[in-house]
């Protein structure tokens, strides 16, 4: 058991080192992240211009929301992108992974952990510390709030990871995922509350969003972070995340099992 984990840990370590070797990559990603933060900051500032609070959310809360949202998105984006998974399926590189004595979805998770932690330590953390000191946004004030936020953020990460990898594995059946892929990305970006929190949705759209797994990715952790989601209300939100994570992970395992068989069939 311990041996297995040591092996997976090795992937994390290697991926961390690899990230350190490609520092330009990391810097350009930081630049992109900061620029979209700037754009969204301006948009929200302009939206609030001349208005006090909208839907009981003040500009300060919204600013805090977009700051933490962009920080989380920065970390999420340091993982293996969807197109990379698709490329491995299309080129058949994934077959080699199947021959090796590890579980591919789990290995990917540990590999991404390496590149993400490198990116977090060298870029996101120092950068956002400065930004937070400058803008003085709402941050969690108690240890328990920090704990709940971190828990929720990790759950959100795992939900997105499961969904995205599952989707990437669909490439086994569909050579061209074009249109479906765009709907998938759109759903993630809108319903996860990555840039527009669910508070501002029309009621009917908000109720659709609450039935989907995506809100657990950014909206719930962000809302906990800025303190708009607090007290008793946190528990059902976390429970919702856990349930969706179980469903998404189950789906991932199911699709992966089917997909590995598919490779065997094609292999010959």
């Amino acid at each position: 058991m311990i041996k297995t984990y040591r092996m997976y840990w090795e992937f994390t370590r290697k991926s961390f080192q690899r990230s350190a070797a490609y520092r330009v990559d990391s810097w350009s990603r930081v630049l992109g992240n900061v620029m979209s933060l700037g754009i969204w900051g301006c948009i929200w500032f302009a939206l609030y211009y001349g208005k006090g609070s909208v839907e009981n959310i003040s500009f300060h809360s919204m600013l805090s929301y977009i700051l933490i949202s962009m920080a989380l998105q920065g970390i999420h984006n340091a993982g293996t992108p969807l197109w990379e998974i698709q490329r491995r399926v299309r080129t058949g590189d994934i077959a080699i992974e199947l021959l090796r004595p590890y579980d591919y979805p789990l290995r990917m998770l540990f590999t991404d952990l390496g590149s993400m932690s490198f990116y977090f330590i060298t870029a996101i953390f120092p950068l956002y510390t400065l930004i937070f000191i400058f803008f003085q946004p709402n941050i969690p004030l108690s240890a328990s709030q920090w704990g709940l936020f971190l828990l929720s953020a990790v759950l959100g990460y795992l939900i997105r990871y499961s969904l995205e990898l599952t989707f990437g594995l669909f490439t086994f059946w569909l050579v061209e995922t074009g249109g479906v892929e765009d709907i998938f990305y759109f759903s993630i970006s809108l319903f996860s509350g990555s840039v527009v929190p669910l508070w501002f949705f029309p009621d009917w759209l908000a109720s659709i969003a609450s039935l989907l797994p995506f809100q657990g990715i950014y909206f719930v952790p962000n809302a906990i972070f800025v303190g708009e989601l607090s007290g008793q209300a946190i528990l059902p939100a976390l429970l919702n995340q856990v349930i969706w994570l179980l469903i998404c992970y189950g789906l991932l395992r199911f699709v992966w099992a089917k997909a590995s068989q598919k490779v065997v069939v094609q292999g010959g």
Partner: peptide
């Protein structure tokens, strides 16, 4: 693939437009 590609792009941009609509739903103007 050809049709999917065209539809995909149209939908990506429609998605951005929908996001704008959602954003302005509570705020009315920017």
């Amino acid at each position: 693939a050809f049709v999917m590609n065209i539809l995909g792009w149209a939908m990506t941009y429609a998605g951005t437009a929908i996001t704008m609509w959602v954003m302005l739903y509570s705020f009315q103007t920017i």
